[in-house]
Structures are given as structure tokens and as C-alpha cells.
Deep mutational scan, measured.
Amino acid sequence: HEITLHINGRRVKLRFRDEKAAEILKEAAKKGLDEEELKKLAEELWR
């Protein structure tokens, strides 16, 4: 699955395995994680 989040006016595509991962990524984006941090988090969730 993929999700596209808008971060600092940019579109960031993240891959994720399940809905739980999608929710975690959305929450992290709301908390203000930047693009690099979100990509790292997405990679961690993928494993």
C-alpha cells in the first residue's frame, strides 16, 4: 500500500504494509515529523 502525505507543502509518498502502519504514519505527520523521519519510520514499520 502507499499513502501520500502533505508535509511542509510537499507531497511525500510512503509505503506501508497495513492499516495500523498507515495510522502510525498519519499520527507522526500530525506531530510534526519531517520527511526524513517519516521515511525512516515507514521503513521500520515495513519490517
Score class of each variant (00 low, 15 high):
41 L>S: 00
38 L>H: 00
19 E>T: 10
30 K>F: 12
8 N>G: 09
5 L>Y: 03
19 E>K: 12
35 E>I: 15
11 R>W: 15
39 K>W: 09
4 T>C: 07
16 F>C: 14
29 A>N: 06
21 A>I: 03
44 E>A: 11
41 L>H: 01
1 H>R: 11
24 I>P: 01
29 A>R: 03
8 N>P: 03
40 K>V: 09
8 N>R: 07
13 K>D: 04
40 K>Y: 10
29 A>K: 03
37 E>S: 15
13 K>F: 06
33 L>I: 10
37 E>D: 13
39 K>P: 01
12 V>P: 01
13 K>E: 05
1 H>V: 09
23 E>I: 12
31 K>L: 11
38 L>C: 05
41 L>V: 04
15 R>G: 03
36 E>Q: 14
43 E>K: 07
21 A>R: 02
11 R>T: 15
13 K>N: 08
38 L>T: 02
5 L>Q: 01
21 A>P: 01
26 K>Y: 11
34 D>Q: 12
17 R>Q: 07
10 R>H: 12
26 K>D: 04
24 I>Y: 08
17 R>V: 08
6 H>D: 14
3 I>G: 01
29 A>G: 06
17 R>A: 08
34 D>E: 12
27 E>S: 12
33 L>V: 10
37 E>N: 11
6 H>K: 10
31 K>M: 14
27 E>R: 09
11 R>N: 14
27 E>I: 08
36 E>W: 12
20 K>N: 10
30 K>Q: 12
44 E>V: 11
39 K>G: 07
9 G>I: 01
12 V>H: 02
23 E>D: 11
2 E>D: 06
36 E>C: 09
28 A>M: 09
14 L>K: 00
16 F>I: 15
32 G>R: 04
31 K>E: 12
36 E>G: 11
27 E>K: 09
13 K>R: 12
8 N>E: 06
14 L>Q: 00
45 L>Y: 03
9 G>W: 00
37 E>A: 14
42 A>L: 04
7 I>T: 06
38 L>S: 01
41 L>Y: 04
32 G>M: 06
23 E>K: 13
17 R>T: 05
7 I>Y: 03
12 V>L: 10
28 A>I: 04
8 N>Y: 05
31 K>V: 09
37 E>I: 08
45 L>I: 04
36 E>H: 14
31 K>H: 13
11 R>S: 14
31 K>Q: 13
47 R>P: 04
23 E>N: 13
39 K>E: 06
10 R>E: 06
